[in-house]
Simulated scan of single mutants.
Amino acid sequence: MVYIGLCLGLGDGFQVGDLIGAAVGSGLGGGISNELQRADEATLRALNLEWVNSPDSYIYHRKRHRGEAVRRLLLIMPHPQTSAPSTSFAVQFPDGYVACLAIADIANQLMFTMAGYGFDLDWVGQKQNLGFIPTDLGNSLPVEIWSGQNQHLVAIPYNTPHQFIY
């Protein structure tokens, strides 16, 4: 949010007011998100915001899985409907839950959103590191095989500074 406010201020020359406006806007956005997280079902229904408590909502996952996502994952796993190998971007929460992301068209822009499904890591009995792959940022990421209970997937965990879940 702060970055958007700062970029909008560059059109007429950067001024101190642009920085203050960006900070205030960011604070309001975070405050709204926190209040939505605390709202009860009746309040959300009255505001037509029931979607906040659905698995498609990041606020739902943040509330249910003890806080903000702690890292991102690139997964190669069976598709939940067809079982064919597929890639999926995901985020992992503090309690270990992995929520998959989907690409949605929002206001004519493709954006990552919560896919509404994911999995707990309680089935993972073994994580085997296959090695590392280099990135264009000059670092290397681990490539792991997670296996257990006749299930397997390839995971590439990474931490990237970010303002959003994707």
Rank of each mutant, 00 (worst) to 15 (best):
V2P: 01
V2K: 13
V2N: 12
I4P: 06
I4M: 10
G5H: 07
C7Q: 15
L8P: 03
L8F: 13
G9H: 09
G11A: 14
Q15H: 12
V16H: 05
V16Y: 12
D18L: 08
L19A: 15
G21Q: 14
V24N: 07
G27M: 07
G29W: 02
S33T: 15
Q37H: 13
A39L: 10
D40I: 07
A42E: 15
A42V: 08
R45D: 10
N48R: 12
L49P: 08
E50W: 02
N53S: 09
N53K: 05
N53Q: 05
D56T: 14
S57E: 04
I59D: 03
I59Y: 02
H61C: 08
R62G: 06
K63W: 08
R64D: 04
H65C: 05
R66Y: 14
V70R: 02
L73M: 11
L73N: 04
L73H: 07
L74S: 06
L74T: 05
L75H: 05
I76P: 00
P78F: 01
P78H: 03
P78R: 06
P78L: 00
Q81N: 15
T82V: 14
T87F: 14
A90E: 01
A90C: 03
F93T: 02
G96K: 02
V98Q: 02
L101P: 01
L101Q: 11
A102Q: 10
A102H: 03
A104V: 09
D105C: 09
D105N: 10
A107E: 13
A107W: 01
L110M: 10
M111V: 07
F112Y: 11
F112N: 04
F112K: 00
T113L: 02
M114S: 11
A115Y: 02
G116I: 03
Y117H: 11
G118F: 00
G118A: 08
F119R: 06
L121G: 05
D122P: 01
V124F: 00
G125L: 04
K127E: 03
Q128W: 08
Q128C: 12
Q128F: 06
N129W: 05
N129S: 12
G131I: 12
G131W: 07
I133N: 03
P134H: 13
T135G: 14
L137C: 04
N139L: 05
I145W: 02
W146R: 01
S147Q: 11
Q149R: 13
Q149M: 10
Q149N: 13
Q151K: 15
H152W: 04
H152M: 01
V154W: 04
A155H: 06
A155E: 08
A155N: 07
I156P: 00
I156A: 08
Q163N: 11
I165D: 07
